[in-house]
């Protein structure tokens, strides 16, 4: 596996800035109710592991980046890669009772990871 380049906070910030409204709305509206869990087939097939919950995935990737204003460690970004690439296949089927568009938020998490050369490793 290639080494993660140094964190470039500015490139993360520009993605956050471009999508600020969407991220903010998603974070503000999520009731942390966990009702989206069962809609993710990965959550179901991984024995209801909470880390596979759609809300957990977006809150702890793009959500965390937003709250920390892009200032995260390399290791944290690598963990986010696992959440948005390994723990989500972006099948876009998550259900939230409020209608939060979770897949779009996870996509943003993926965009940030990609700017740092982090994506899915199929041969892992």
């Amino acid at each position: 596996m290639g080494k993660t380049p140094e964190i470039n906070t500015d490139s993360i910030k520009s993605i956050l800035k471009q999508n600020r409204k969407q991220i903010k709305l998603g974070l503000a509206m999520c009731a942390h109710c966990s009702l989206c869990a069962e809609s993710c087939f990965l959550f179901v097939s991984k024995d209801n592991d909470p880390e596979y919950m759609p809300s957990y995935k977006f809150i702890n990737s793009i959500g965390r980046l937003y709250k920390k204003k892009g200032k995260v460690s390399k290791q944290a970004l690598e963990e986010m890669r696992d959440l948005v690439f390994e723990k989500c296949v972006l099948c876009t089927r998550c259900y939230c009772p409020f209608g939060i568009d979770i897949p779009s938020l996870i996509t943003l998490g993926r965009s940030v990871c990609r700017t740092h050369g982090l994506f899915r490793e199929y041969d892992r």
């Binding site: 009731a31 109710c33 966990s34 909470p50």
Partner: peptide, 13 residues
Amino acid sequence: LLPRVRILTTVYD
């Protein structure tokens, strides 16, 4: 009590 809710919960909730 439920791990799936606890993992999302913040003081604000």
